[in-house]
Design a protein around this nucleic acid. Structure first.
Lengths: 121, 121
DNA sequence: TTATACCATGAACTATACTTCATACTTTAT
DNA sequence: ATAAAGTATGAAGTATAGTTCATGGTATAA
């Protein structure tokens, strides 16, 4: 169980961003009931996993709201197996679609490139 | 040479968005000097091509500023061949990188899925 | 014990990418 | 001729995803 500073260092995500994500509902730290002198929040390794997932999913263009679905599909105990699988399948389709679009734009840029190389004098 | 309404219909991009893109400097329509009674802007087919490129590039997560570079690399007459090729190569690398990230997240989600399928009872 | 570092909270601020609104003028169809 | 549709411009508003700031309390090391 780590404090926010250590969590930030482990994940490379700024403290303010972690706080923002937590407020957004992507995960939750815990208050230690036995600690009376302060109000500090503690985070376990599951939160590290969630932050890693957030970083990866963001890098491929998922919104925080889409990432929240993904996190719920993987970590939530309130969601049925069927629902989880449906969410995961939908995310996989989104990724397939993105890969297709990327390949298509890649082709277009490669075409631009060959045109610039061959006909731009 | 078409007016903004027709351009919007041809590309499927809302008029307000086209205006926003034009203001952002992604392309420019032309005023007809011989038309004295109004101030209407006219757009040619090159603008249609640019709007198509904007739509495609946006869909794969390029920012408008990145898309502007791309448009310049393809359409600008002010930019040297070498510079254009460098920009296009850099965009191709970005796309390769995105494809890799997508495949990596895809694997991760497939793992989640198999775990949910097999161990979630 | 006191300076430095760390934590919490709320509010304001920023950037990107639009969208909506208000106003006013122009064109077109009836 | 006049109502409906189209165009231009500027300003304000919205959504997402943060970042920065102010304030105040807590922990720790010299």
């Amino acid at each position: 169980m780590k404090l926010i500073n250590q969590l930030s260092k482990e994940t490379g995500i700024p403290i303010a961003t972690i706080r923002f994500y937590e407020k957004t509902g992507l995960f939750a730290g815990k208050k230690k009931a036995d600690v009376k002198s302060n109000n500090y929040t503690y985070y376990d390794d599951e939160v590290v996993g969630k932050l890693d997932l957030i970083r990866d999913a963001k890098s491929i263009g998922f919104t925080l709201s889409e990432i929240k679905e993904l996190i719920d599909a993987w970590y939530s105990k309130q969601i049925s197996k069927e629902k989880k699988l449906a969410i995961l399948d939908s995310k996989l389709s989104q990724i397939e679609e993105k890969i297709k679009e990327l390949k298509s734009v890649k082709k277009q840029i490669a075409f631009f490139k060959s045109e610039v190389e061959n006909f731009d004098w």
